[in-house]
Design a binder for these strands. Structure first.
Length: 963
RNA sequence: GCGGGGAUAGCCAAGCCAGGUCAAAGGCGCAGGCUUCAGGAGCCUGUCCCGUAGGGGUUCGCGGGUUCAAAUCCCGCUCCCCGCACCA
């Protein structure tokens, strides 16, 4: 039964909205527009609660703005571009059990559908259909006439993307270049983090190769510390490693066999002349290229031929590993004999110190090895020692005189210069390699490949960055703290490889073997929404959407007649499209999760500033946290994946929306808890019952202070909810609209006994409208229960009415409430069951003092002496100076600690006739305490006051006596 | 490593930018009472410690400081989360 009610209500109103075409928005010059967007979801799976959270925030804003009279457009589309859909499809074809199980169990894909997923387009289509239904069910106020999906399977969209990229290339923002990637030699494609069995988060690092001279060949030794060349003492080669002599771009290099393969993937022409074991080199001498010193090659099994060139030079003064290796060799005479290396060659090697660094002496490497007690080459602490010395020397190390022109410089300041110089001198080169092992999902070990002929979006361009920064400065950013994040990411972005060889998408128009990559084809598509309607409505063919046409529509370029003639699209249609684009653009709000800031949202900014004039740049960006499920990050593998569909099935749309919204705002991560959803379900049911009761009320039309209080307080709520949504503080807004107002009404009903039905209905009408953006289906139902015609979705948003704000009534209510609390507190502490409760309200002169103090305290901090001086000017008060002093002293303390706003409110409320107010509320107090309540004035000579309590009374704090 | 966000009572979570109404909103949970034929419903009360008169004490990651006054401002420290590129 519980489920049925929500579903019935939701389906009913959804149908009515659709029949009325309520959310279809067309340009209307008489109304201000508001264009909100949600990043189209990727269709390799169903929508989940995370999508639901972000999109609900968009919908709340859309619904709010619509009720405020804006012409609101909230369109929707689907993202198909990229690898994963194709990848999943292939895995299904190959019978990937785990994936198939996940699709069946989590996505609830029926068996007969699953079979057809071997076609990626079928799969994308399936999820699109599914998701569209879910988007409708959750009540997003979408104009579906503008729906589309991406890729070449939506030719009109493809034409749009082609236009975008041709335009960007003409502007010089798309350029050709090279780029190192982690590469699987077997799959012949880049291996992204998600495609790896081993080595997540590992990316290519650039090594410097120092070309040591070895006869007519070079021994290119790999290092991150080229400056240490000044301290080289020898070289290490793995005697058992496979090495080659190869022509590398015409030079003879001696490197490991795998290095030869790697280099051939890094834009070098590699021709292997012969292969041999490393031991062949041991005991021979090479020449260091700067000063020509002759140095020995020694055996080192720690040298990994699979790492970089497999050639390592030794700097024992500064590299702990080198020092350890040398020390090892010194003791191993047999070994040296085997390689025919005279022991004195090793013994005579003296570390050469080239960096002075605070905290260490001549030979940091030797010191740290001793300090950390590192025993041999295989000690795991060796790595830590290496990185410690490296960091310390890099940041604070100063090069010694031995380093020639670099002497006296801090390492980190000259490193780049050294590399550049060495390259110029022809003694250094570079290569990429992976610092750790990476294995592709296909089980092949990955290498680094330099892709050539890559197309890049030139996000490194300083002028482009400057404009992007400017766009962020001009936009509203919710929350404000995300603004810095954007600036930071804009600075950090480098050129972006914007085309791929595989996956779905739109081919690069001038180089169609490349497909425009997924993040790059989704940056300005909001513009496409504005014309997607016309393309469908007028049956415009993709071929008609030429560059001229888009130039005209989006940039206002070209001659209308000419463009029309050439494209075959009628002039009035082109004009209409141009006008519609200009009407809706710019985007007024785009919202996404914070994980998209460094990529999608920044790209969105970059591309807008490149293509559109300032007045069409995005107006506001909202960023939110990532959804957690029961305190855990949502993931299919953890089994805590909740689809939006499943949530709606379980709780209904309104409960789902409200639960999501109450979860979090700003950049905090909302946490979906089943317990919360259930409690909100109960809350909304009881709201339904309460509004039903209110709608049936009649009679009682006297307007009391408590009625004015309710009307007043609801104004504050209107204001707070309105401001919160304006700033996308959706949690705050929902919290006030649901709970705070509820509490207000509860207090009102409790206080009022028999409510004023007119006023309560008025407030209910406001309340339901304030809730509409959050729980639209239920509110439509309540709206009609309250006797309204038409949709609440387009009803007028309640407006803050200052004339109804009644500070005095609010202060009176605070007074009553605190009297209630005080009395209750006494009863609790004394454990009395009261028969009679006596209140004694403060005498008029006390009030006079109080008001005077409040006034005085507006401008300064009160001080006893001054205050008394002021008060003594009052004749009546002067006569009672003795009793005055202790009261004033207490009041000063009280008043001084009041914030200025409160003081102003109290002054505005003025003297409150406490006797009257308590008498008015006598019934209420008697009901609450189940006792007789008597109220006296402090100065009433006939009062009943057996304990002499009356004199304790202070303004707003009557004395209390209970018996 | 670089960058961003955090740490508040049993839990979740406001407040901090603009210092005082803060023992600290709201929700959940828990306890007691009321209402109800019943109820994963509603209403009331309590939920840091002490208290037979509305009061007092000790709290807002840790340690200092500024101030008449600090959860809020300043300095230092510890810990946690998130992102880091060819991937949507």
């Amino acid at each position: 039964m519980t489920q049925i009610i929500w579903r019935e209500i939701e389906e009913k109103w959804r149908r009515k909205w659709e029949e009325a075409h309520l959310f279809e928005a067309d340009p209307d010059p008489n109304r201000k527009k508001c264009f909100v967007t949600f990043p189209y979801p990727y269709m390799n799976g169903p929508l989940h609660l995370g999508h639901g959270f972000t999109a609900t925030r968009v919908d709340v804003y859309a619904r709010f703005m619509r009720m405020r009279g804006y012409n609101v457009l909230f369109p929707w589309a689907w993202h198909w571009t990229g690898e994963p859909i194709v990848g999943a499809s292939l895995r299904i074809k190959s019978g990937d059990k785990e994936l198939i199980r996940a699709l069946k169990e989590i996505d609830s894909v029926p068996e007969e559908e699953l079979e057809k997923f071997v076609d990626p387009i079928y799969m994308a289509n399936y999820y699109t259909q599914e998701s569209r239904e879910v988007v409708k069910r959750i009540g997003f106020s979408v104009d579906w006439r503008r729906e589309f999906h991406t890729t070449s399977h939506e030719p009109a969209y493809s034409k749009f993307i082609e236009w975008q990229y041709i335009t960007l290339r003409d502007m010089g923002y798309v350029v050709k270049g090279t780029h190192p990637v982690v590469w699987c030699p077997s799959c012949q494609s880049p291996t992204g983090d998600h495609d790896r069995l081993v080595g997540e988060g590992v990316f290519p690092e650039e090594y410097v190769l120092i070309k040591f001279i070895f006869g007519d060949a070079f021994l290119p030794a790999a290092t991150f510390r080229p400056e240490t060349i000044f301290g080289v003492t020898n070289m290490f080669i793995n005697p058992d490693g496979d090495y080659v002599e190869a022509l590398v771009n015409g030079e003879k290099w001696i490197i490991s066999r795998s290095a030869a393969i790697k280099l051939s993937e890094q834009l070098r022409k590699v021709n292997v002349l012969r292969e041999f074991k490393g031991r062949e080199l041991i005991g021979k001498y090479f020449k260091e290229p700067i000063s020509g010193r002759e140095l020995p090659i020694l055996p080192g099994w720690f040298v990994d031929p699979d790492s970089a060139t497999g050639v390592v030079y030794s700097v024992p003064a500064h590299a702990p590993a080198d020092w350890i290796a040398l020390k090892d060799l010194m003791d191993k005479l047999d070994l040296l004999r085997e390689f025919k290396v005279p022991p004195e060659v090793v013994r005579n090697i003296k570390p050469i110190s080239l960096i002075s660094v605070e905290g260490f002496g001549e030979y940091p490497a030797i010191e740290i090895v001793e300090q950390m007690g590192i025993k041999d080459q295989f000690d795991p602490k060796l790595e830590e020692a290496t990185s410690l010395v490296y960091r310390k020397e890099f940041h604070t190390g100063v090069l010694k005189p031995i380093c020639g022109k670099y002497a006296g410089k801090v390492v980190k300041d000259v490193k780049a210069q050294i590399i550049e110089d060495f390259k110029k001198m022809g003694i250094a080169s570079t290569m990429y390699d992976l610092p750790q092992k990476v294995v592709c999902r296909c089980t092949t070990k990955c290498i680094v490949k330099i892709l050539s002929d890559q197309w890049f979006l030139k996000y490194s361009d300083p002028e482009w960055k400057r404009l992007a920064h400017e766009a962020i400065d001009l936009a509203k950013v919710f929350p404000e703290s995300a603004r810095m994040y954007f600036h930071d990411k804009i600075d950090w972005l480098r050129d972006w490889a914007c085309a791929r060889k595989t996956g779905l998408g739109t081919p690069l128009p001038w180089d169609p073997e490349w497909i425009i990559e997924t993040l790059s084809d989704s940056t300005i598509y909001m513009a496409f929404y504005t014309i997607a309607k016309h393309i469908r409505q007028y049956g415009i063919h993709a071929e008609q959407l030429t560059k001229d046409v888009f130039d005209y529509i989006f940039l206002g370029k070209g001659d209308l007649g000419e463009v029309s003639r050439r494209s075959g699209i009628k002039e009035h249609i082109l004009k209409e499209m141009r006008d519609e684009f200009l009407y809706w653009y710019p985007v007024d709000l785009r919202v996404s999760a914070k994980e998209l800031v460094p990529n999608h949202l920044s790209f969105f900014i970059f591309q807008h500033v490149a293509l559109f004039p300032r007045e069409l740049w995005p107006r506001a960006i909202g960023v939110n946290g990532m959804l957690m499920i029961e305190g855990q990050k949502m993931s299919k593998s953890k089994g805590n994946f909740l689809t939006l569909k499943e949530a709606i099935n379980r709780y209904g749309a309104d409960v789902t929306r409200m639960t999501l919204l109450l979860g979090a705002e700003d950049m905090d991560d909302p946490d979906w808890r089943d317990e919360n959803a259930r409690s909100i379900d109960a809350k909304l049911r009881s709201l339904y019952a309460l509004i039903g009761q209110i709608s049936g009320l009649s009679g009682e039309d006297e307007v009391k202070s408590i009625d004015r209080w309710l009307l007043s307080i609801i104004q504050e709520r209107i204001k707070a909810v309105t401001e919160a949504i304006e700033n996308l503080k959706t949690r705050t807004a929902a919290e006030i609209a649901l709970y705070e107002i509820w509490n207000d009404i509860r207090w009102y009903l409790r206080r009022r006994g028999s409510p004023n039905s007119m006023i309560l209905k008025e407030v209910a009408s406001i309340w339901v409208r304030l809730l509409t953006p959050f729980t639209p289906f239920l509110c439509e139902e309540l709206w009609s229960i309250l006797g309204n015609k038409g949709f609440i979705s387009v009803a007028k948003w309640p407006e803050y009415d200052e004339s109804k704000v009644d500070v005095r009534s609010e202060e009176i209510e605070l007074f009553i409430k605190s009297l209630l609390d005080d009395t209750m507190n006494i009863l609790r502490v004394t454990r009395l069951s009261p028969k009679k409760i006596y209140y004694y309200v403060a005498a008029p002169w006390k009030w006079r003092v109080y008001m005077r103090l409040l006034e005085e305290s507006l401008s300064r901090r009160l001080d006893m002496r001054e205050v008394m001086k002021v008060l003594m000017t009052d004749a009546e008060l002067r006569s009672m100076a003795k009793i005055l002093a202790p009261l004033v002293s207490r009041l000063i303390e009280e008043v001084n600690s009041l914030p200025i706003e409160r003081k102003q409110r109290l002054l505005k409320a003025g003297v409150i006739d406490e006797f009257y107010e308590i008498s008015e509320s006598k019934e209420f107090f008697e009901r609450e305490f189940n006792a007789t309540v008597m109220v006296y004035r402090e100065d009433d000579p006939n009062k009943y006051d057996p304990r002499g309590k009356a004199q304790q009374s202070k303004p707003l704090k009557p004395a209390i006596y209970i018996e």
